[in-house]
Structures are given as C-alpha cells and as structure tokens.
C-alpha cells in the first residue's frame, strides 16, 4: 500500500466524485495552494494510483435500457476461446474470469429484452463449449463510495 497522507486521500475522493473539479476548488477544500495540489495530483498519476479520467455515460439515455450479469460456465478446453469471443461482443461491457459456480461473469448492456434474448439464445448458444448460463437482470444501480478503502 503506497504511503498516502490525509490530503492525498481527500484529493482522490474529490476527484473520484468529480474529475473535472478545478485545481482552485480542490485547493480550497484541502487547504493547499493550487501548485501544491497540482504536484500531488501529478505524483498520484506517476505512481499509477490515478490511472486516468473518464466520463460517466448514462447508457439509458442512449437507449440501452437493459443491463444484466450473465454467469457463464464453459468446458475447460475452450476457456480462452470463449473469453476472446466474449470480449469482441459489443453487448459485453465488462468481463471477469471468476472462481466458484461459473467460469465467467459478463455484464451485458442491450436496448431491450428482445436484444437480450437474442444475445443469450442465439449468440451465446452458438458459442462452442458453453455448458450453461444464468442471467441476473440488474434492476437498480447503487453508487458505492470507497472512502473506507483509503
């Protein structure tokens, strides 16, 4: 665990909430000069603690109303091929190889139930080596704060 003081932690939490917050505002909130904040952010970036900055896109506003986790169990021999094929699918926005009752957990984003069904019943069903899938529809997103990790 890298050595972070309380000011570094505050800066990280402020940027996590709003990566576009101005250096002046951050400086006011943490009680440092603008240059002081700038240097700290640069160091956090250099250490790889801040990996990048991105926009939170509301996919529902773009018409993607259905989100689901799909647990996928595969035959061991095709594990890598299935992972590669899943990564190429536009519906798969996150993919994890996991331990436990299945081999992969894929987060799927589609426009409607028809597209979800098509992905499950046609796309996945066609992939060789898939043993079973279990689909968990996401019905509410909770915003998790990770203050306690810092």
């Amino acid at each position: 665990m890298p050595d972070l003081d309380e000011i570094d932690k505050k800066i990280l939490l402020l940027l996590k909430d709003n990566a576009r917050m101005s250096l002046t505002d951050i400086a006011k909130k943490v009680g440092l000069s603008v240059m002081g904040v700038k240097n700290r952010i640069r160091k956090l970036e250099e250490k790889g603690i801040i990996e990048g900055y991105s926009a939170n896109i509301n996919l529902s506003r773009l018409g993607y109303d259905i989100m689901a986790f799909v647990e996928i169990s595969v035959e061991a021999r095709v594990r890598r091929e299935v992972a590669e094929a899943l990564q190429k699918r536009k519906e798969v926005v996150e993919l994890y190889e996991v331990t436990g009752t299945c081999d992969f957990m894929a987060k799927i984003v589609v426009r409607n139930m028809e597209e979800l069904r098509e992905f499950l019943a046609i796309t996945l069903a066609k992939m060789e080596g898939i043993i079973s899938t279990q689909t968990l529809l996401i019905i509410r997103n909770y915003r998790i704060k990770f203050d306690k990790l810092l």
Binding site: S60, D65, I66, M67, L137, I138, I139, R140
Partner: peptide, 10 residues
C-alpha cells in the same frame, strides 16, 4: 417500463 420501476415494484 424500466429496471428501476421493476425494482420499486419488487
């Protein structure tokens, strides 16, 4: 109509 509506109903 939406995922949130289903969540509320549940």
């Amino acid at each position: 109509e939406t995922r949130e509506e289903l969540s509320n109903l549940l």
